[in-house]
Design a protein around this nucleic acid. Structure first.
Length: 295
DNA sequence: CTTAGACCTGTATAC
DNA sequence: ATAAGCAGGTCTAAA
């Protein structure tokens, strides 16, 4: 495992903020370093100063890091765009320096991971995914006193027993995971990845034909796994933030297909291609506020 | 088109 | 002990 160095200008990326706010689920702080699995690759980062050291198993450190954190995107210019399009975003940009939109290396891993999230919470989600990888994933590396496993293949998940997954704490999501794995096997080999080439609404409609994939999970997979920057995952945090801070006319209403679409349309009109980034700042702002209140 | 209830389970707040 | 304008929802049934 070789280690390389990379110049990271101050303020370009806040790694803990990016990896602990529910965009990805397999990152851990170990002995002052940050280690994360991306499908079948392990990336270890020492985010110190402006010369970070990166190591990887199963991939090249710099391309992997650049892909996951979209380092080809200039964060400053994103922030300027968001504030120019809606000045309310300035408070969230200021409050969340270095927050970036993440990009998964595997749409499949992204899909199965977000299938674990409905009516759930972050600590339980990360635990479920970790046990899933230990049970069904190939060992990739031993580092930091623990084994690191690849995310399970679709073939392996399609063969899983519902009782096994329930024993791992998946609850009613156990059946959905298996059903989706089998549904994917029944389609064209690269069906999921091919959705990246479709227009946003077409790709979303196609994803929602899978069991357990509603509007919110579909938007997560589109945004984080399939490069659709027009996707807006509207979960409880986004819904509350929109009502409180952005669209007061939503107060007193409930989140339905109609109000969901109203929010997506509003983002498209206001932010265009910056929609996904705008969503991420608003979502994270509300998530962190709700976590502070809980303490 | 809207709303209620069911669905697994861990955690935190309120009696 | 016990419920929850729970917690990064989805699906079905019923008005």
């Amino acid at each position: 495992m070789k280690t390389v160095r990379l110049s990271v200008p101050a303020g370009e990326v806040n790694l803990p903020l990016c990896v602990r706010t529910g965009q990805v689920f397999r990152w851990y702080e170990i002995q002052g370093l940050w280690a994360g699995m991306a499908n079948d690759a392990l990336l270890i980062v020492n985010p110190e100063g402006n010369r970070w050291s990166l190591s990887a198993v199963g991939g090249e450190p710099i391309p992997l890091f650049t892909h996951l954190f979209r380092m080809e995107v200039d964060l400053k210019s994103v922030q300027v765009q968001l504030i120019r399009r809606d000045s309310r975003w300035e408070q969230w940009v200021r409050a969340l320096p270095g927050l970036r939109l993440m990009r998964w290396t595997s749409a499949t891993e992204c899909l199965f991971s977000f299938l674990c999230t409905p009516a759930n919470n972050l600590p339980r989600i990360t635990g479920m995914i970790e046990r899933l990888c230990e049970r069904y994933g190939t060992p990739i590396a031993e580092w930091g006193g623990r084994q690191w496993h690849a995310f399970p293949t679709v073939e392996r998940l399609a063969q899983a027993e519902e009782a096994d997954l329930r024993a791992l704490g998946f609850g009613y999501r156990a059946r959905t995971l298996i059903e989706v794995a089998r549904a994917l096997q029944a389609r064209e080999p690269n069906w999921l990845e091919s959705l990246a080439e479709l227009p946003y609404w077409d790709a979303k409609q196609a994803l929602m034909t899978l069991p357990g994939v509603g509007a919110k999970v579909a938007d997560c997979v589109l945004l984080f796994g399939l490069n659709h920057n027009l996707a807006v995952p509207v979960d409880t945090h986004m819904w509350q933030a929109m009502q409180k801070w952005v669209l007061p006319e939503l107060r007193g209403k409930s989140l339905t297909e109609r109000t969901y679409r109203q929010i997506v349309d509003w983002f498209h009109e206001r932010f265009g291609e910056w929609t996904g980034w705008a969503h991420q700042y608003l979502f994270t702002a509300h998530l962190l506020e709700s976590q502070r209140k809980g303490e």
